[in-house]
Lab assay of single mutants.
Amino acid sequence: EPSQADLDALLSAVRDNRLSIEQAVTLLTPSSGGGSGGGSMDAKEILTRFKDGGLDRAAAQALLAGRTPA
């Protein structure tokens, strides 16, 4: 399960175009075949909204942490 520091680094990389959204989703869902963790939004949607400015960093982190299976 990614830590808050991992999520923060991942969000920074996506925002700075050092990591594509697809690459980030793969890192967030290493063994689930890329499927959502059952959250209301999947990781790709969360990351896309964050990059487009629709979500701030704290909200994106909380959503990603919340949808990651324990």
Score class of each variant (00 low, 15 high):
69 P>H: 15
1 E>R: 10
9 A>W: 15
30 P>N: 12
5 A>M: 15
12 S>N: 09
12 S>L: 08
4 Q>P: 14
8 D>W: 08
24 A>C: 05
28 L>S: 02
66 G>R: 05
33 G>T: 13
29 T>D: 10
48 T>Y: 04
24 A>T: 02
50 F>M: 02
65 A>R: 10
9 A>N: 06
65 A>C: 07
41 M>A: 06
44 K>T: 10
55 L>D: 01
31 S>W: 11
61 Q>G: 08
1 E>N: 13
12 S>R: 10
50 F>Q: 00
22 E>G: 04
52 D>Y: 07
21 I>S: 01
56 D>Y: 02
23 Q>F: 09
15 R>A: 14
2 P>S: 11
34 G>Q: 09
15 R>I: 13
39 G>M: 12
25 V>I: 06
24 A>G: 03
47 L>Q: 00
39 G>R: 09
9 A>K: 07
34 G>P: 14
65 A>L: 12
59 A>T: 14
59 A>H: 07
30 P>M: 07
19 L>E: 01
51 K>R: 10
11 L>A: 00
39 G>N: 11
61 Q>A: 12
37 G>H: 11
29 T>E: 11
19 L>V: 09
12 S>F: 03
60 A>L: 03
41 M>Q: 08
63 L>T: 02
58 A>F: 08
56 D>E: 06
44 K>A: 07
46 I>A: 02
44 K>Y: 11
68 T>H: 08
5 A>L: 15
67 R>K: 12
60 A>F: 02
24 A>P: 00
67 R>F: 15
30 P>T: 11
6 D>R: 07
31 S>E: 13
50 F>W: 14
8 D>Q: 06
59 A>Y: 04
53 G>D: 03
63 L>E: 06
37 G>C: 13
5 A>N: 15
44 K>M: 07
2 P>Q: 12
42 D>C: 14
13 A>K: 05
50 F>G: 00
26 T>G: 11
23 Q>A: 10
18 R>D: 05
44 K>D: 03
13 A>M: 11
67 R>V: 15
5 A>Y: 13
25 V>Y: 05
39 G>D: 12
11 L>K: 00
30 P>R: 12
46 I>G: 01
10 L>W: 05
53 G>E: 03
31 S>I: 15
11 L>N: 01
56 D>C: 05
29 T>G: 13
53 G>R: 04
9 A>Y: 13
37 G>T: 12
14 V>D: 00
16 D>C: 07
28 L>W: 05
31 S>R: 08
40 S>E: 06
9 A>T: 09
68 T>F: 15
19 L>M: 10
69 P>A: 08
34 G>I: 15
43 A>M: 11
26 T>P: 04
5 A>E: 09
43 A>E: 05
15 R>G: 06
49 R>Q: 08
52 D>F: 05
63 L>Y: 04
32 S>W: 09
47 L>F: 07
49 R>I: 06
54 G>N: 15
53 G>A: 03
40 S>R: 07
64 L>A: 01
64 L>G: 01
8 D>A: 06
59 A>C: 14
7 L>Y: 07
23 Q>I: 08
17 N>F: 03
26 T>E: 15
21 I>Q: 01
34 G>L: 13
54 G>K: 15
21 I>W: 02
63 L>C: 07
11 L>I: 03
58 A>N: 09
47 L>E: 00
43 A>Q: 05
43 A>R: 06
69 P>C: 09
50 F>T: 00
51 K>Q: 04
28 L>R: 00
50 F>K: 00
8 D>S: 06
30 P>V: 12
10 L>M: 06
9 A>M: 13
58 A>E: 11
7 L>Q: 02
32 S>I: 13
55 L>A: 01
49 R>N: 05
41 M>F: 13
30 P>L: 14
56 D>L: 04
23 Q>P: 01
58 A>H: 07
58 A>W: 07
31 S>F: 08
64 L>F: 02
34 G>W: 03
61 Q>R: 12
29 T>F: 13
48 T>V: 07
27 L>A: 05
19 L>F: 03
69 P>Y: 02
21 I>Y: 01
21 I>G: 01
49 R>K: 11
5 A>G: 09
1 E>V: 11
63 L>H: 06
60 A>M: 02
63 L>F: 04
9 A>D: 13
18 R>E: 07
4 Q>D: 12
3 S>V: 09
43 A>V: 10
66 G>P: 07
60 A>T: 05
27 L>P: 01
3 S>W: 13
31 S>G: 10
44 K>V: 09
31 S>N: 11
6 D>C: 15
63 L>D: 03
26 T>L: 15
66 G>K: 09
58 A>Q: 11
27 L>K: 07
34 G>D: 08
30 P>C: 11
69 P>L: 08
49 R>Y: 03
39 G>V: 10
49 R>F: 03
24 A>W: 01
23 Q>W: 04
10 L>G: 01
22 E>P: 04
7 L>W: 14
21 I>K: 01
51 K>N: 03
25 V>W: 03
62 A>V: 08
66 G>W: 05
65 A>Y: 05
25 V>S: 05
35 G>S: 14
61 Q>N: 13
4 Q>H: 14
55 L>K: 01
1 E>P: 09
57 R>M: 14
35 G>F: 04
54 G>I: 12
47 L>C: 01
13 A>I: 02
32 S>C: 14
41 M>G: 07
24 A>L: 03
32 S>V: 10
25 V>L: 11
22 E>N: 07
13 A>S: 05
27 L>H: 05
35 G>D: 12
44 K>W: 11
22 E>A: 09
63 L>G: 05
44 K>Q: 09
36 S>V: 11
56 D>P: 05
58 A>P: 04
3 S>Q: 10
61 Q>C: 09
6 D>G: 09
23 Q>M: 09
69 P>V: 11
25 V>K: 02
42 D>E: 09
19 L>A: 02
29 T>P: 10
36 S>P: 12
23 Q>D: 13
57 R>Y: 15
16 D>N: 07
36 S>I: 08
55 L>W: 02
2 P>W: 14
34 G>R: 09
37 G>M: 12
60 A>E: 00
42 D>T: 10
35 G>Y: 02
68 T>W: 11
37 G>F: 14
13 A>N: 04
10 L>A: 03
54 G>M: 13
37 G>Q: 10
53 G>C: 04
42 D>F: 10
42 D>G: 07
35 G>R: 06
69 P>D: 09
52 D>M: 09
23 Q>T: 06
59 A>D: 11
11 L>R: 00
45 E>P: 02
33 G>K: 12
17 N>W: 02
25 V>D: 02
9 A>I: 08
24 A>I: 03
4 Q>S: 11
67 R>M: 15
13 A>F: 04
40 S>G: 07
40 S>F: 14
20 S>I: 02
7 L>I: 12
21 I>H: 01
7 L>T: 04
63 L>Q: 07
50 F>N: 00
16 D>M: 06
48 T>E: 11
56 D>S: 10
56 D>T: 09
57 R>P: 05
19 L>W: 04
67 R>T: 15
39 G>W: 04
37 G>L: 12
21 I>L: 04
37 G>N: 14
37 G>R: 09
28 L>H: 02
52 D>G: 08
38 G>W: 06
44 K>C: 06
60 A>W: 00
15 R>F: 09
40 S>N: 14
57 R>D: 04
31 S>K: 11
70 A>C: 14
58 A>D: 11
60 A>V: 07
20 S>L: 03
31 S>H: 12
5 A>C: 15
52 D>V: 05
30 P>W: 10
18 R>T: 10
17 N>S: 09
